[in-house]
């Protein structure tokens, strides 16, 4: 089975990348539609499903390109793992204390990098859809928004994480109850 998979590694990689791009495109459409609806609801008090289609069609390409740029920024964090992997001798993993420490430090730096990036770029989608900006302008506007409202953005993210955490705990507790 492994030999069959290794024969088709390029096809599988191409399929995974194309599939990922299609999924990101679909998510971009509905995300921009949801933000458009939320904007309408905030401005007029009522939201309509037709707004989802309008906002989705209008911003899907820009949001898709912005999402890809953001994904590339996230992938750039892999550079933190390179020193550890480069020094690691995988044939004798037990005799690689220094490389292990380097790899662990790389993982920690990668986590910190991802955390900082996700906080800084938290407002990108909203800035892009609400201001109807292009992908680069959207990212810059999101960063600018974060600079001006640093404390509020972090606080709002913490509240969001707290709500998600409480929901997950409730979900776990409900899962334990046997009917």
């Amino acid at each position: 089975m492994m030999s069959t998979l290794s024969q088709h590694v390029y096809e599988i990689a191409a399929l995974v990348i194309i599939g990922l791009l299609i999924l990101v495109f679909i998510a971009s459409f509905f995300t921009s539609g949801a933000i458009g609806m939320a904007r309408q609801a905030t401005e007029t008090g009522r939201s309509q499903l037709s707004t989802m289609m309008e906002a989705g069609k209008k911003n899907v390409v820009n949001l898709f390109l912005a999402e890809i740029m953001v994904m590339l920024l996230f992938f750039a964090g892999i550079v933190f793992l390179v020193p550890g992997i480069k020094n690691m001798d995988f044939s004798q993993p037990s005799e690689n204390a220094t490389a292990g420490v380097l790899l662990l430090t790389g993982f920690l730096l990668l986590l910190i990098y991802l955390l900082i990036l996700s906080v800084v770029l938290a407002a990108v989608r909203y800035a892009l859809v609400i201001e109807s900006l292009g992908p680069v302008d959207g990212i810059l506007a999101g960063i600018e928004f974060f600079k001006k409202n640093m404390f509020d953005v972090i606080l709002l993210l913490l509240v969001t994480f707290a709500v998600a955490f409480v929901s997950a705990i409730i979900n776990q507790v409900m899962g334990l109850i046997r009917l």
């Binding site: 509905f30 995300t31 609801a41």
Partner: peptide
Amino acid sequence: KNFNLCVPF
């Protein structure tokens, strides 16, 4: 007031 906001998700 706008439960249809969950539809896109």
